[in-house]
Every structure is written in structure tokens, then in C-alpha cells.
Design a protein around this nucleic acid. Structure first.
Lengths: 142, 142
DNA sequence: CTAAAACCTAGAGTATACTCTAAGTCAAGG
DNA sequence: CCTTGACTTAGAGTATACTCTAGGTTTTAG
């Protein structure tokens, strides 16, 4: 039920430096310490690190994550702020996914283009082919 | 057919500072300059900025983008490197999209949870409900 | 012709998120 | 008991990508 910082680093893939940094930034205000000063992580703390990872991976800066954790600590009076934050984050993710989709199509055009170019040994000729010109116009607007 | 740096900044949404920074970093080795030193951007240059934006938005660092531009300048001898780069980038995008999907499900769980919590005025009770416990176990593993 | 706006370079400063170092303390195995 | 490895803090250093400043030049509109 209690993990050292090194064990948590192995479990999560974060470095011990990063874990201490997160605590210093206020992202881990839960962590207990032994009388001699060693951090003791609980399973709950590791779950929190999972939530931090989720928010980080979806583009939230550490300050935003800290805000959430602070709200959490303030109890039920901040429920609506936290709900609003998650709604905003949902929107951010959806926007980012659409952007990735659009850009994936562009990259896949480039793959088709370069695949043909590698086969022919030349890019400039392939680019002139009607099929590629049409796709380029549709995807890049030129 | 020729744009000033300020016009390009408006067109692209990038700042003039950023455009000069990109040139300094080797991302815009095409840009012509007038005899008095002013940058003159062509439509082609603006298309390049579009490609830079695409790569940047899909997580490629400026160094990687510069590598691509350098390869482009070296001509058809680097076609296969460029193809490999785009294939790698396609994979990066797909991985990122899967990650976003997984994390979107977690955020949407939180929205449902907090929506119910706001209605009841308490988080701790809602968290105990079987429906939410089951979803939490499925999505977060605890 | 002049004043204001836009441009130039070189270099310093900022924000974010780590990442590492130094100097020391603590804990577990032989 | 003692060594080795893991831990501690405080603070410095790094990487990335801007962002801004100072001091000066060029362009453009009246």
C-alpha cells in the first residue's frame, strides 16, 4: 500500500526527478512523508498520476492540472468549476482530433506522392500528374 | 506575387517575430530579399508555411521540419528519406489519435460523473453508485 | 519633403517542462 | 558496523519555441 518514489517511477514511467518536480509544482499535495522525510505514495496517489497523465496527454498545461487539483481539495463547492473544466477539455480534444484528421489526410497525400516519386526516381514529374494535382488542390488549396 | 513579412503574418496568423525566427532556424531558405534587405514572400513560400504548420500541428519539432526542408533542397536523391519521414509521421499521428480517443473516454466519464455530482451537490456519494464504479474500473482500472 | 508605419539585425528575455548536480541523509544486506 | 544504493533538498542547467527590445533603415502616404 506504500511505494517509494523509485517504485512509482518504475510503475508510471516518469522519472524520480519529474515526480519531485510535480510535487514542487503542487500537483501532488497528497503525498505523505515518513518522519525522516521520505515520500510514501499510496495507490490513490498513483491513480492521481494517471489522471495527471490523461490531462497532460490531452494538452492541458501543468498549471491547469494544478488548478483542478486545487479545486478538488476545496471540496464540493467547486464541483461546477471542475465540470466546466472537463467540458472545455472535451472540446479541446475534439478540436485537436479534427485538426489531426485534416493533417493526416495531407500527410497521406504526401505518402502517395512520394511513393510514386520514389518509384519513378523524380518528384517534379509526379507532381504534374492530374490525379496528384487534383488531390493537392483539394487538400492544400493550391 | 510578392508579400511583405507583415502581410504574411496576417495571412498565416504567425507573428512577424515567429516568421523571422523560422527563417533563422533554416525553415524558410527560399525567401528572397530586396536590395535593401526586406523579405519578399512568394505564394510558394506561403504554401511552405502551410506544410510547416501541418507538420508542427502533428507534433514534429522544428528540427525535424528543417531536416525535411534540407532533404527537399538536396533534390531527388533524398526522396526515400522524405517518404520514410512521412510514413513515420503518419504513424505518430495515428498513435496520437488513439491516445486522444482513450483519454477522451476518460474525460467524458468525468463529465458524466461531475454532471451527476453537481445535480446532487456532492461528489463522494455519486462516485459510489454502481454505474460509475463500473465505468471507472473499465476506464481507469481502479 | 517629412512623418509615421513597417521593416531590418543582433541579441536578450520568457514560458514550459523537465533534467541534472551537489552535498548530504536514510535504509537494507552482509 | 559498514557499505551501497536509494533517498533528501536547493538550486542550476537544458531544450524548445517563441517573444520582445534596442537601435537603426526603408517605405509609403500626405
Amino acid at each position: 500500500m506504500g511505494y517509494s518514489i523509485g517504485q512509482v517511477a518504475k510503475k508510471t514511467g516518469l522519472s524520480v526527478h519529474t515526480l519531485r518536480y510535480y510535487e514542487k509544482e503542487g500537483l501532488l499535495p497528497f503525498i505523505r512523508k515518513t518522519s525522516s522525510g521520505l515520500r510514501v505514495f499510496s495507490d490513490d496517489d498513483i491513480n492521481w498520476l494517471g489522471m495527471i497523465e490523461c490531462l497532460k496527454a490531452t494538452g492541458m498545461p501543468l498549471k491547469g492540472i494544478k488548478q483542478y487539483i486545487d479545486w478538488y481539495h476545496q471540496g464540493d463547492s467547486t464541483l461546477s468549476q471542475r465540470l466546466a473544466m472537463f467540458r472545455q477539455q472535451e472540446q479541446n480534444i475534439k478540436t485537436k482530433m479534427q485538426e489531426l484528421n485534416t493533417n493526416l489526410a495531407k500527410i497521406q497525400y504526401k505518402i502517395r506522392l512520394y511513393d510514386a516519386a520514389v518509384k519513378q526516381g523524380s518528384l517534379s514529374q509526379v507532381q504534374q500528374e492530374p490525379e496528384f494535382r487534383a488531390a493537392r488542390l483539394r487538400l492544400f488549396g493550391h
